[in-house]
Design a protein around this nucleic acid. Sequence first.
DNA 1: AACTAATCCAACCGCACCAGG
DNA 2: CCCTGGTGCGGTTGGATTAGT
Length: 388
Amino acid sequence: MGRTHCVDENGLKKGPWTPEEDRILIDYIEKRGHGSWRALPKLAGLNRCGKSCRLRWTNYLRPDIKRGKFSEEEEQTIIYLHAVLGNKWSVIATHLPGRTDNEIKNFWNTHLKKKLLQTGIDPVTHRPRTDLNNNNILANLPQLLAAAATFSNLIMNNNNNNNTIPLDNALKWQSDAAQFLKIQLLHNILQVLGSPNNGSSSTAPISMEAMNILTRPTFLENNSQLYELLRMNSQLEGDSNNNNLPFPNMAPHELTQLHSNFLNLEASNSHQNDQLQLSDYHPLGQAMKESSKICPNNINEHFTPSPSSSANITTSSKLPKVIPGSPDRQRPNSTAQNKISPNDHISNHSSTSTTFEAWGDLMDDEASDSYLREIIIDQASPQSWPFA
DNA sequence: AACTAATCCAACCGCACCAGG
DNA sequence: CCCTGGTGCGGTTGGATTAGT
């Protein structure tokens, strides 16, 4: 694996290491230590550059390197730390004994990135994906639904298992994430319903199907604020008679307020006063916080978000705790409880009707909308919200 | 069985940082 | 302060392997 055998301009070998070269390098370092990497190859009798030797040792030959698959715990730690630190692989590696930065980086790029994307999370920002525009929202809704459903189901499962005490923070985090996804779904649906130039020729049928779901008594009961937002949207579209929606008696100023509230949802992701911090939700983060109390410089030294990292975690909020999002990692007992199976929606449910039904089911979940209501209702004053 | 596409991952590249002179 | 060598780090490459047709 790796590169072909070749020789650079100085006659030094490049490419994959042979077992013999490995043995020479190990023998030398075990006896004398690596010392100066530049001098090592000559002293050890290797026709390699020092850099190549260092890389081979640190990424592969070191005796304390752990091989094999990453555990679930390691996965979650990586995603958590990536959200906090960005692509600081070496720092992340210091929290995963036996794993190298290179290995973690590769694992991230080949597995975790995709996993997060599948669950509707942007792997760069660690927020729900924002690359879903009016034209492709319908195609992507199933994924977002699957993500939200997965979050919800995980919460349910954990609650049912009386597992909440050690996982309280993590569950809250997940709950927040699920609610956040719902807000995003609403936002996206409103876009579809409300945009006259959404590029879709199926606007009217979608609206009707959506309305069928949204007018369910249970949905209405549990999500009245959402419903009013939809009504408002309908009115903005010119449906002044609100033929499709109830609550026909809402005063114009109330509509204006609702509109304003909704815009506030989208307005900003920067000025947050009551932010939740990742460190409040992940055990590692809590440990770090404790550590920083003992040694105040510690946390800055090790956990200053990279300027290039858009995660900017200490100023963002409500990042979802990592969950086993890929279908093959679903908990066995979660399948039966799934109102929406991720598999179903990703692979089977292509109709908008099914999508909206699923969304309706999700939003009907009585345990899931209080936060949503709170957000919508409380939007009277400008408040930051991680809506990208 | 043969071919192609997708995935994996060791290794390389180039830049940045730091310490010593 | 500047220069230079050594090292660390993040991004990228490309051959090997695996999966799919």
